[in-house]
């Protein structure tokens, strides 16, 4: 049975847009981070699909995905560390309260 590529591509695009929507609307920093993870995962799946369907002879997309997963993990670790540092001082991780510097 063959599933056409479009049935994979539409969900990843929806995932990516959900990530952008969540990043913009959420106020909790952890939720914003989760939204970004959603976007990064959409990218990973996209690479794998293109590799699997369009260029099955090579592994470039798969390799990129492996590296992208590691990079995403490093990014999340650093962001969590900074959020924890903020939480220790504020007891609060709501972005609408972090407004000391503005125009």
């Amino acid at each position: 049975m063959d599933i056409s590529m479009i049935y994979y591509l539409v969900p990843t695009l929806v995932m990516f847009c959900c990530g952008i929507y969540g990043f913009i609307t959420r106020k909790n920093m952890i939720a914003m981070l989760i939204s970004i993870e959603l976007m990064l995962n959409a990218v990973d799946i996209n690479f794998v699909i293109f590799n699997r369907y369009l260029f099955p002879g090579q592994l470039e997309g798969m390799m990129f995905t492996l590296f992208a997963i590691a990079i995403a993990a490093a990014e999340t670790a650093l962001a969590i560390a900074i959020i924890i540092n903020l939480f220790r001082a504020h007891k609060n991780i709501d972005v609408s309260d972090i407004t000391k510097m503005k125009f």
């Binding site: 981070l33 990014e75 900074i82």
Partner: peptide, 13 residues
């Protein structure tokens, strides 16, 4: 701290 959280979130995004 505030600058760092703003920088890291926009950088990952």
């Amino acid at each position: 701290r505030e600058a760092a959280i703003k920088y890291i979130l926009t950088a990952i995004f």
